[in-house]
Amino acid sequence: MNTPGTILRIPQITKRQWLRLLTHVFLIFGCFIMVFPLIWLVSSAFKPGNEIFQREFSLIGSRLTVQNFIDGWNINPTYYFGHFMMNTFLMVGSVVIGTIASSFVTAYAFARLQFKGRKPLFAFMLSTMMLPAQVTLIPKYLTFTAFGWINSYLPFIVPAFCATQSFHIYLLVQFVRGIPKELDSAAKIDGCDCFSIAFRIIAPLSKPAMFSVGIFTFMWTWDDYLNQLIYISSVDKFTVSLFLRSLMDITSSVAWGPLLACSLISLVPIIVMFFLAQPYFVQGIATSGLKG
């Protein structure tokens, strides 16, 4: 666009371009607010311990060092930090497998099979989705105490294998309903019963939804603190959350570095998971709506 009277041909910025530029400035500023604690965490974990709290902030300290990681790994006199990571993986992994398997068979039955009481049971299942967790917190603790399951991972794993997360059942029901019924009919004609239809036809097709269920379960269980706090009491069974919390109690200012290094390591699995699962993830939230 040329305006008359300009001698120098300064490229003119239109109002629309200004607006676009401003939008990006706003979004980038917002991004900074979103990630600065994480950037600080990464930056500090690699700094010499005495430089973490300094009057002048620098992204990279006087030198890059992995000393915090080495100290953090060995900070517990009996167990390496890896032990607590393995505990968490073991617990979370079992919960994920259990949740996927049990939620899938439940969802398949609700979405595809005809049986007496299907409608009221389904309505009941939906209503348990609204049930606030704190109501069952105490009696569940008493029940698991009676079972002798305290200080083990059974209070997490057994309910997972019993499809207690209605949200996941609902997500899978919605997905299975979207699979064409003709596939079932064709398989029936070929002599498949509903078990083989479920496991040989519907299950492979439901992989994307199972994947979302797995990711959500992984993240919620990995991040969870209250339940782990209640059920796990001995150090050898500690999960990462509990271990980090216990470090905070004993930490003098000297040990901030190792604590940050361990925190950083503990975030790596969920962040990696998140980026791997990006497409499924955003889709899953957008279609089902979700807690945050």
Binding site: P37, L38, W40, L41, M219, W222, D223, Y225, V240, S241, L242, L244, R245, M248, L259, L260, C262, S263, L264, S266, L267, I270, I271, F274
Partner: peptide
């Protein structure tokens, strides 16, 4: 994703 973890609380 990371907000409700103990690690983030520490940070």
């Amino acid at each position: 994703i990371v907000g409700s973890s103990v690690a983030m609380a520490v940070t």
